[in-house]
Amino acid sequence: MIELIGRSFREALEGLGSAGRMCLEAGRSARDVRTWAPLATDQMRRLGVGSLPIGVLIAAFTGIVLALLASYSFTNSVPRYLVGTLVQKTVMMELAPVLTGLALAGRVGANIAAELGTMRVTEQVDALETLAYDPIAYLVVPRILAGLLMFPIVVGVAMMVGLGAGWLASMGLLDLSSAQFLKGARLFFDDFDVRYGLVKAASFGVAVTAVGCACGLEARGGAEGVGAAATKAVVTSAVLILVLDAFWAVVWLLGRAV
């Protein structure tokens, strides 16, 4: 039992260390623009645009459920228009970034880890090095860049879709007028809500892609190793998303509250 705990802790530290090292190397390799720039657009489309449907779907259902949940929770002493406030704040600041991030951790993180893991076990990465390509600049930088830029896009769209779904659900299912919902949504709206969600999404994107790349490039032992790398990438990314979520809340929200 104790050994298990120690091993888990060591592996987690190793994962974080390799991801951090990967980020540092990616930062250094980012200067090699000619290597990663032609690939960045493709990665952004694959990781970002390809993830829009899942992000939109999650956000739509989240907005609907939040509106129903708010209506269920509020008693007669709470004005109905606060349904809009709850949906706006919760979707924009928390649920859209975190749920979309978790979904993309499964989709994007596993995809990157499996792809790079396969390249590693089939020695394609070694071939790149042989051809004088920097594998970090060629494989990692475009993906991290795609995660950094496209996660906020996906999460931003998810925010708006979630808010719209909550709005429609309030009008269609809760007998709440459009004006009432908008009054609540506007009541405590601040630009900061959007900035906070997008910055969190960007950090999630970097974490998911960096962990996916690190796990993929460290894959060993064939198909089994590739599967293990994909699993490890998803789990580590999910944990990192939650840790980063708490980090931003403590650093940014707590500072504003004080």
Binding site: T41, M44, R45, G48, V49, L52, L149, I153, V154, G156, V157, M159, M160, V194, L198
Partner: peptide, 12 residues
């Protein structure tokens, strides 16, 4: 990609 990014920015 450009259309998605532009649309997302306009939407947000």
């Amino acid at each position: 990609l450009g259309a998605v990014i532009l649309g997302a920015i306009v939407l947000i």
